[in-house]
């Protein structure tokens, strides 16, 4: 009875999360949904007499693999939203039809089989005394060759990732002297002014005031201003709103200009 309840709760949860993974526009939400599916599956493993796999699922998948996914998402840029333009006409429709047909086919095929009550793992794990010792026994006797090949695979994967992600430096690293020179040749030798603090506000998004009481455009935090503009939040002060608009437009002009190759 307990297993049935657990199964139905987790099945609904994991299928909903899987749909969320496919349909959410933002990649980070997809990653979180995938983590949800993996955690549900870990619990499903645990109630199916596979405690070791449940632990490995949580440690390897939700721990390592999801971290890697999120790390690469941050590296590539979280706001690289998916384009909604279909490059192949009718692709979404036919993909949905194919997926539905596939699911129905598999479900019908499975549903047509009548299974006896599950044998359970008690007999299989009794000899070695537990799930983990039995798995270890199998892994280091019958599957020892596959295990060794796995180690070779892991080393190859680690080396491959290093080789692929490595970038040769094409020009020498900028010295401190060159950086200082570039800064003094540039438009702003001094640091940018910090944000202002008013009597009513103590926040990073408040611009600083110049001695004559006007707002200093250099003190507007561009990242926050961009987020505010995207979210449709406009400051109540019209002067500040106009300045933010100006700063954002300048940013867009800079972005549209051919961007120079950065040397990271």
């Amino acid at each position: 009875m307990g297993e049935t309840i657990t199964f139905w709760v987790l099945a609904v949860l994991s299928v909903a999360a899987a749909f969320g993974l496919v349909f959410s526009r933002k990649a980070v939400y997809s990653a979180l949904m995938l983590g949800m599916v993996m955690l549900s599956l870990a619990v499903l493993y645990a109630i199916q007499d596979a405690p070791f796999l449940a632990a490995v699922q949580i440690i390897v998948y939700t721990g390592a693999v999801m971290m890697l996914f999120l790390f690469v998402l941050m590296l590539v840029g979280v706001d690289s939203a998916d384009s909604l333009v279909e490059t192949i006409r009718g692709q979404r429709f036919w993909a949905a039809v194919a997926g539905l047909g596939f699911a129905v086919l598999l479900a019908l095929g499975v549903g047509n089989v009548t299974f006896a009550a599950p044998t359970g793992m008690e007999a299989a794990v009794k000899e070695a005394g537990g799930n983990v010792p039995s798995l270890a026994q199998l892994l280091f006797t019958r599957y020892v060759f596959a295990f060794e090949v796995t180690s070779a695979l892991l080393i190859t994967a680690a080396l491959g990732a290093m080789v692929l992600a490595h970038r040769e430096r094409v020009r020498p690293k900028a010295t401190q002297r060159e950086l200082a020179r570039a800064r003094f040749i540039g438009p702003q030798p001094s640091p940018l002014p910090g944000p202002g603090t008013y009597a009513l506000h103590n926040a990073i998004d408040m611009p600083a005031l110049l001695p004559d009481g006007t707002v200093s455009p250099k003190s507007i935090n561009r990242v926050l201003a961009r987020h505010d503009t995207e979210d449709g939040v406009r400051p109540t002060d019209p002067e500040k709103a106009a300045l933010i608009k100006q700063v954002i437009e300048k940013d867009i002009v800079v972005k549209e200009a051919p961007e120079q190759e950065d040397d990271r």
């Binding site: 994991s14 899987a18 993974l21 496919v22 194919a98 997926g99 539905l100 596939f102 699911a103």
Partner: peptide, 11 residues
């Protein structure tokens, strides 16, 4: 459930 998740992943 496994078949459903697999099909959703394929889509």
């Amino acid at each position: 459930l496994s078949a459903l998740l697999f099909a959703i992943g394929a889509v």
